[in-house]
Design a protein around this nucleic acid. Structure first.
Lengths: 148, 148
DNA sequence: ACCACATCGTTTCATATGAAACGAATATGC
DNA sequence: GCATATTCGTTTCATATGAAACGATGTGGT
């Protein structure tokens, strides 16, 4: 029989939504930044400058969402949006000083929060969980391809 | 440094969203039913009749969402919505014949799909994954409570 | 009996979402 | 070169979302 509490797609959704809610509560309250905006920041924290499309590829967000997040961040003075010199369709997104400063304040807090969350698992368990998640994601891609 | 690909809240969200998308594709295409609607059906499949509030408690959905899903299902002729005899605030929701028939068609397919997804893990791995998910969810509740 | 308060489900409202249409810029085929 | 197709990012549009207001019903205290 189908028991929703044992149906993994459902369980995962509940878990993921709760994590998001907890995190969003902190981002938004303390820094006035939404989750999509924070994702853009996090990606730029690793690599800069990037086009919107680069961010779409690295973020699993659709381009409309990225476009809106970028617009907000530019309006908030956190990102600069220049056009690529040799291809005017592309943006060149990078932190302003203010943006980088904010990133450097948030990133450690996000990691620290994650740490507090994950410390209910030991190292082996955490590694297992990540590995199994990756397997499940891989399998999902298989199934998605089969349908097409 | 913060690497989004290694940031579990993000990874979980991506995974959960992809699973939902895959499942929704099947529910909606084949049965004309949304995920919130399907959740209501799944809960009623286990226990009947229930009030909207019962479903809220069992489903991790907010009451507005449940209300809308129930309305759709009633309009589609899949649920009957009677009022509780001794407390007129409560609904008594149960399957119509058509609703039960649909449930009995979908449930095995959902389980079978889950089966195909999860068969990338062996039994031990699956048990581990579920146990670790549960731990993470428990810890999340702890952290949420600390903030309040 | 009455009044204040709580509970149930619906509805309203402001916001978030993503698919698709779009305009601008570039690449490709002929 | 020029017409066509493709890519990039924005905007539009229809829908989904959840917090809060709401009306209806019940409960409890006096």
């Amino acid at each position: 029989m189908l028991d929703l509490d044992d149906f993994l797609p459902y369980r995962l959704n509940v878990l993921a939504k709760r994590v998001s809610r907890e995190l969003a509560r902190r981002y938004e309250a303390q820094f006035g930044i939404s989750i999509p905006e924070w994702r853009v920041m996090a990606i730029l924290g690793r690599e800069q400058p990037l086009s919107s499309n680069d961010i779409v590829e690295r973020s699993a967000m659709d381009k409309a969402k990225v476009s809106r997040a970028v617009t907000s961040l530019v309006e908030a003075g956190l990102l600069s949006r220049d056009t690529h010199p040799s291809d005017q369709r592309l943006l060149r997104l990078s932190f302003t000083d203010k943006g980088r400063a904010l990133y450097e304040r948030i990133a450690p807090l996000a990691l620290e929060w994650q740490q507090r969350w994950l410390n209910c698992l030991d190292d082996v368990e955490l590694a297992q969980f990540k590995a199994l998640s990756a397997k499940l994601e891989g399998q999902l891609e298989q199934l998605a391809r089969d349908v097409l």
